[in-house]
Design a protein around this nucleic acid. Structure first.
Lengths: 220, 220
DNA sequence: CTGAAAATACTCCCTTTGGCGTATTTAACC
DNA sequence: GGTTAAATACGCCAAAGGGAGTATTTTCAG
């Protein structure tokens, strides 16, 4: 007889509408003495109601595609009331939108249902002691998202001259021709000329479009 | 005799300055027939030079803290020349800055040196077939980053009315009073009034400031 | 039903912007 | 040494924007 863990078992709740999956999980996870499956629910609504009368669990396994309220919305509400509860999404969905929305809602991990049972158990236990479990395919989506969020800066330069870049910044910050002219001690007409040049390079024709494009393309 | 993998072994390169770690990895990974450790390097510089004379590897294990050029910079250069090569960072650093910079540089995975050898091997092989390997502690940092990047949206509403929000969007998209008026079949003077109201609520007084603030505060 | 907020509309006045042209000086690159 | 691009500057004009005031109608919650 071994004593791999002296601490109390992990109180876990499963929210999953498909009976076979739900019961399968309950059984599989229950086999490990370090896990205690407190209860299971088919719907977010009933789960959230029951939270008042139930001792707060350590961890929740949450499906996304549920009848009624979505699991993502469930996470949002749950985390607002109990920020300390660890929530792991367990779903078949692997599209970037749902992944990001889940994370923004407060999820602490995102695993796909294709995860093998032994890995799943390991990941659940690791979520408490280590960090956030993510299926590799999910992680890939997230990395892609980070990559093309911070990048487009140097791809698009639009061939602006140094002076034009300075002035571009000022325009975005809301200065008028005159104010910018004063900053650099040049004539307002010159500033205007620069700005018109920039407009041509960026293919815009008003302050609003200009500022929008400059910010979106991370020129500032 | 079993045939778990018919495909050719994974050509792998290790860039790591500490001799023990480097040789340890080479030995450990080399034990698995699915992996072929082509070469190892102590520095990014020599690695990058050698790339011209070497067949392109499938995967590179890259350390960050190296003498001379940092591993992150190495990834940037490598990925620019060989986008198809899979790069996994293997380091002791787990700060958000280095993690994000690595990903933006093009890394396909980020593992900590505390990763157990068997897991490491599994993750490396999975990087080709599955997705991006991330240590749970690294994933945790990334999730935190995503969480507080997408949040401030609904905190600031500025008490805009529905109509004002519609018009706000149009202004950001570069439409003039007249154009917006036409869109909703109302008078340009009304549009102007709405916009002036919005200016007061957002505390701005020009198109440029308006657009900047609206985008930055994610009102659009 | 009543009152507040929102949406509508107009006027006057001045400033700013956008588009056009022209022209000189400086700097950089063959 | 000559060409090119950048930065400087001015003028003209029509369109758009910004500030302030007033007023009517709709809508919605108390």
């Amino acid at each position: 007889m071994t004593f791999p863990s002296v601490s109390k078992p992990l109180d876990l709740i499963i929210v999953e509408d498909q009976k076979e999956v739900r019961e399968g999980l309950r059984y599989l996870l229950g086999l490990d003495p370090r896990v205690n499956v407190v209860r299971t629910f088919e719907r977010v609504e009933t789960f959230l109601e029951a939270l008042d009368t139930l001792p707060t669990p350590d961890l929740v396994l949450m499906d996304i595609g549920l009848p009624g309220m979505s699991g993502i919305e469930g996470v949002r509400i749950l985390k607002k009331r109990f920020p300390a509860v660890i929530v792991i999404i367990l779903t078949v969905f692997e599209d970037t939108d749902r992944i990001l929305e889940s994370i923004r809602a407060g999820a602490n991990g995102y695993l796909l249902k294709s995860t093998k049972p032994d890995i799943l158990l390991e990941q659940i236990l690791g979520a408490v002691s280590e960090g956030s479990p993510l299926s590799p395919r999910v992680a890939k989506r997230i990395l892609e998202e980070i990559q093309d969020s911070g990048e487009p800066s140097e791809l698009s330069d639009y061939g602006l001259t140094p002076r034009e870049r300075q002035i571009l910044t000022d325009v975005v910050n809301g200065f008028t021709y005159r104010e910018i002219a004063a900053r650099y001690s040049i004539a307002a007409s010159t500033v205007k000329k620069h700005i018109l040049h920039i407009y041509q390079k960026l293919d815009v024709n008003s302050r609003a479009e200009f500022v929008k494009k400059a910010i979106r393309e991370k020129l500032v």
